[in-house]
């Protein structure tokens, strides 16, 4: 059945997506839709295909088959990473990846939404970014006191926040956040949940996370992935009492 993509209010639409690595089906007939302004948590055991799903959405991995549409009309399977990023899809990696030999402020500077071409970076607008824009982001992610430090010198949790700040600076329509609270203290985790809820007020957000307390904190619809496809979907209470979900998590 061909869906009515142009009219449905989806920011992200995946249907029948499969991806095989060396005979191993990492993603298996996956279907998922995300509405504009929605926040969604994705959980699932290790190897369920959560990161691979993000790879497919952001153009890092091409699916073997299936539809991947952004904003109802844009086919993401034909685009490369840079084009997809410029459409307005930002991504935080599972392993925090910041530019270690740049300062915290420069990390944000490079992420800020603006022209991305070498000409602009050499001579043009990219060199005239107002410091206030950088400071504004750094205040949100509470790194303003560290803005001249090298990113390499930040703690693990601070790097996670810096990467979230870089996401914000991109000002994407859709944020894909892979395990944002790994390695954080409980207090930092709670802060991160608050921050993401705030971001979700005017962005669509997909959060992958193992930490159940954190997912509960996010207070949004939950999708459970297992062996590359959707096992269950619903509120956190509904999915955590779902028998098949319990089986998958306890049966490991």
């Amino acid at each position: 059945m061909i869906p009515d993509r142009g009219l449905t209010n989806t920011v992200l639409y995946l249907d029948g997506v499969s991806k095989t690595f060396d005979g191993f089906r990492a993603i298996n007939n996956l279907a998922l839709t995300l509405e504009h302004g929605e926040m969604r948590a994705i959980i699932g055991p290790n190897g369920a295909g959560k990161t691979t799903m993000m790879d497919i959405i952001t153009g890092k991995t091409k699916p073997d088959e299936g539809d991947v549409y952004f904003d109802g009309t844009t086919d993401l399977t034909t685009l490369d990473e840079a084009s997809i990023a410029n459409l307005g899809i930002g991504r935080k990696f599972q392993k925090p990846t910041v530019f270690e030999s740049h300062t915290v402020a420069d990390n944000i500077r490079l992420a800020l939404k603006d022209e991305r071409g070498p000409w602009s970076a050499l001579f043009g607008a990219r060199n005239r970014i107002a410091p206030e824009r950088i400071e504004h982001i750094l205040e949100i992610v509470r790194l303003i006191d560290h803005h001249e430090r090298l990113a390499a010198d930040l703690s693990h949790g601070q790097k996670q926040w810096l990467e979230i700040g870089m996401l914000l600076a991109q000002d994407p329509k859709l944020l894909l956040v892979d395990e944002p609270v790994a390695g954080m203290t409980d207090a930092e985790t709670a802060d991160t949940a608050r921050l993401l809820r705030e971001i979700a007020r005017d962005h669509s957000v997909v959060v992958v996370e193992h930490d159940m307390a954190f997912v509960r904190d996010l207070d949004c619809k939950v999708t459970v992935l297992h062996e590359g496809s959707v096992l269950a979907e619903g509120t956190i209470d509904a999915v955590s009492s779902n028998e098949r979900v319990i089986e998958v998590y306890l049966g490991r």
Binding site: K60, A82, N86, R91, T97, E100, L110, R116
Partner: peptide, 13 residues
């Protein structure tokens, strides 16, 4: 330092 990160920020590496 992080080529693919740069791509995901939208830069044409």
């Amino acid at each position: 330092d992080a080529e693919s990160r740069t791509r995901f920020l939208g830069y044409r590496v």
